[in-house]
Design a protein around this nucleic acid. Structure first.
Lengths: 248, 248
DNA sequence: CTATATTGTCTCATTATGGAACAATAATAA
DNA sequence: TTATTATTGTTCCATAATGAGACAATATAG
């Protein structure tokens, strides 16, 4: 048991945190135009879970989300969205977490704060795979990317949380593309080609899109500024570069 | 102080409820095709608030929402949707609630459970104005309908909650119209005319819609079954009646 | 029987979308 | 240098969706 874990066990009342309130994160990353999510694994238990965290007593909940996300990925200034709050009694199952704690040599009592009932606020994030440094939390052994098609079985209701996150993300793509809070801007270079943006869309939606329709739609949104062609990466006509128009 | 209030003060630990977790409700009602929402008023304080409630320790959160909604309106089997969870520190302001409790002759200590920080899950509901019997909670004096245009100043962040609810409702109208969980079905007679459905839409959206386009769109959704004409309510051609197709 | 209000449908112009074609062109191969 | 190739920006046209209005049908009021 390392120092962090020791602190976690000592703090058997969860002092400093809002009781009964957790956050779970569906962190989407892009690797060579594959969509992956970040999962925690607990060795010797074959249990997998979404990264999660708690809200401090003197902290805005949305700020807490940014803090935890930064702790898990090393990233700040990324796209983060709250999508649903999960409060079923069926979430309240001591067994898996007890298994995890025991595998770490801990021996929590029944009323240890981590074993109580939690309501969990779901957030999803979109991050640049390259820039992230996945970091496990004190209870986990590893923090690894999994493609959506190859997810292992997840603890509790975490599969449901992933599905709801993906559904919300896909439904909100167009509406949250532009502006200061664009989900796409952090995933692209300052200047990017239409093809690169289209591949991002295709990765998230899991389907091919028509090139001419996509170009027409993006340009009609009036959120892109066309720059000079500068690309020199392939045996073909140079594409224009674009950047998002950031209104002042 | 009545019996309920006494019980509320005695229970200064909030025993039986999940600590720190509240729910706030934006209850939309239709009165002669006007959109109203239900507000609580605290006499001698000029404070107005959304109806709210708490989750019991052995209760699903969404079930708790139905229970509280039933307590406030006497209605069950209505459309209810969770739309956002509010967790800013700025919500944590003892002043208004203390004012209310003192106006009721209570004298809560600083650590009374009602005066602690709460994270609140927002739900909105659509109900039939005629069928509801608005009922104030133990702390409130009245529970009254207000039109959206004439809302009084609201406590804490409740104005923000109303705005977010309305935004979500309007965005989801089409998507959640049909099926077993239709928002519109509880607001209409079993059989209704296209004009009645259109007026519902117009009331919620706050704008007129084109008659022919609306009819075309509704019929194309393939969620309506046309019945025989039976209407006999005006000096004009009898409209068809429709009902929602409920797939088994 | 006539007037009136509202309905169901139709028409037509406008706009959006799907799907393909085509010339332009930057790197690569010959 | 020239031909080849992949990809791009644009155009085109058929089809579909939408806005705005016209018109006949008709149940009640007068």
């Amino acid at each position: 048991m390392n120092e962090k874990e020791a602190r976690l066990e000592q703090n058997s009342e969860g002092a400093g945190y809002l009781p009964g309130l957790a956050m779970d994160f569906v962190i989407f990353g892009f690797d060579q135009y594959q969509l992956k999510i970040l999962l925690l694994e607990y060795r010797n238990t074959s249990l997998f879970a979404l990264p999660g965290g708690f809200v401090k007593e003197n902290e805005n909940m949305n700020d807490a989300a940014r803090r935890v996300l930064s702790e898990r990925t090393g990233l700040s200034d990324i796209y983060l969205d709250q999508f649903y709050t999960f409060g079923d009694l069926a979430r309240y199952d001591q067994a898996p977490l007890r298994t995890i704690m025991q595998a770490k040599g801990m021996n929590p009592t029944d009323d240890h704060w981590l074993l109580r009932r939690f309501v969990s606020v779901g957030y999803y994030a979109l991050i640049d795979f390259i820039k992230a440094t996945p970091t496990p939390d004190p209870l986990s052994d590893t923090c690894v990317w999994y493609t959506l098609e190859n997810l292992p079985e997840l603890m509790l209701d975490h599969k449901t949380i992933v599905e709801k996150a993906l559904e919300t993300l896909r439904a909100d793509l167009d509406r949250k593309l532009g502006g200061i809070d664009s989900w796409a801007a952090p995933l692209l270079a300052k200047a990017f080609t239409m093809g690169e943006l289209q591949k991002l869309y295709e990765t998230i939606l899991g389907q091919k899109l028509r090139r001419s329709s996509f170009q027409r739609k993006m340009l009609s949104l009036a959120i892109l500024e066309r720059l000079e062609k500068q690309y020199s990466g392939g045996a073909h006509k140079a594409p224009y570069l674009y950047q998002f128009i950031m209104e002042k």
